[in-house]
Every structure is written in C-alpha cells, then in structure tokens.
Amino acid sequence: MRDAARDLMRDTVLDVAAEEVVAHGWDGLQVRAVATRAGVSRQTVYNAFGDKHGLAEALVLRLLDRFLDGIDRAVAAEESLRGQWEAAVRYALDAAATEPLLTAVLTGTSSDEFLPLLTSDGGPVITRARDRLVATLGGHHPDVDPRVLAPVAETVTRLTISHIVLPLHPPERVAAHVADLATAVVTAPAR
C-alpha cells in the first residue's frame, strides 16, 4: 500500500511538473509551486527526486517510456522489419513534433536543463530506448541476431534524437532513410 501511495505521489508531482514546464519553461518551474499544486510538501518533492535535475531526469525518462509504448504499437502494426524500423522512427519524429512537453524541452528556455539528458548525458535515455527496440524488434524477428540488432538499435536511437533536435528533412524521408540503413545492416550476411 505504501509503494502504491508513493507511486501515485510521484506521478502526481511529475504531471504537475510537466504542466509547469510546458507553461513556464524549466527556468519558470518552482518546486514550491509543484509541491503546492500536487498537495505535498516541498521536502517531499526533494526526497522523491533529489533536486531539480533529478526531477528533470524523471520527467524525461517517463516521457521516454510513454514514447516507447507508442513505438511498440507502431512496430506491431507493421509486418516487415524495414516497415517496423520506419514506423518506429516516424512515430518518434511525429510524436516529438506534437508532444508539448518534448517541444518545451527541445525548443524552449528549458532546453539548457533538459537537452543534455537527451544528448551529452543521454546514456540512460539511449540505453532504455535501445534495449526496448531490441526487445520489441527481436520479439517480432527472433531470427535476427541480437548482437547485430543492439548496436543498430542504438544507432537508430541516436540518429532519431539528432533529427528531433535538428530537423533538416521531412519526417517521412528521414524515417525511410533510417529504415533503409538499419535494415541493410541487420540483414547483411555475417562477416
């Protein structure tokens, strides 16, 4: 029961923090305001997340998990490996363009705090996305060698983040190119 209450409190705090970041950017986020709106003490927020950076990391990882759930659904809707790579990348690019929290993270004044969590300090994000892609695609294609799939999934994750942060081409073109590359490497004869 105590774990369920703690999880509910964390979710409530993260929901409120996400709303605050979308409305005011990371610089406008005040732990006191989040605590008040969530109905907990400021110390409770600090105990749960450590500090403002810990709160940012928790927001990004929760957003990532929701993103990955969507990618799983997009992949499941396709039959071919190439179609699944393309669906995964396209979903990520489209969701990044329409998700208000991610938009605030990547384009607002909050980027100074969040962007490193996706790029230079992005180890947990990249690892979680890579492992989920390996599990999802490996589940659909058990014949694909996971030792090949893992580095390709990591590369696809990094490429997708790069295109989210600095979009140069239409999402459908990026998704097709990344899918072509990933499929070519995964299906290449072993050396």
Rank of each mutant, 00 (worst) to 15 (best):
A95D: 02
H140N: 03
V13A: 02
D27Q: 11
T107N: 13
R90E: 13
A97M: 01
D94P: 12
A175Y: 00
R158N: 11
E57G: 04
E99Y: 08
T36A: 13
W26S: 14
A88C: 11
L101K: 09
R128A: 11
G39V: 10
S120E: 11
S111H: 00
E113G: 01
T160G: 10
L159T: 05
T136M: 10
A87H: 14
R82M: 06
A129D: 02
T44Y: 00
L68E: 04
P124Q: 02
P124F: 04
G83K: 02
H169R: 14
R147Q: 07
V34S: 01
A18I: 06
A179Y: 01
T107M: 12
T119H: 08
S120W: 07
P151C: 03
A129S: 13
V186D: 03
R62G: 09
L181E: 06
M1D: 03
E19D: 15
V75L: 12
D3V: 13
T127R: 01
V60G: 03
G39P: 08
L118F: 06
D27H: 07
V13F: 02
V89T: 03
L149V: 12
R191L: 13
L64A: 11
T36F: 11
A95I: 07
I161C: 13
S111N: 10
T127I: 09
A38C: 12
L166S: 15
M1Q: 12
A5T: 11
S80T: 12
L68G: 05
D131G: 04
G25K: 03
R191F: 05
A48T: 13
S110E: 01
I161K: 09
D3Y: 15
A150T: 05
V22P: 07
T12G: 08
R130K: 07
V75Q: 02
P124R: 00
P171L: 01
A190G: 08
D145Y: 08
A150M: 09
A88E: 07
A104M: 12
P146D: 06
V105D: 06
H140D: 05
P170Y: 10
A5I: 15
L29K: 04
G122A: 15
G122K: 08
P171G: 09
D121M: 10
A74D: 04
T109N: 05
A88H: 02
R32M: 11
L61F: 13
V134R: 02
D51C: 09
A97D: 04
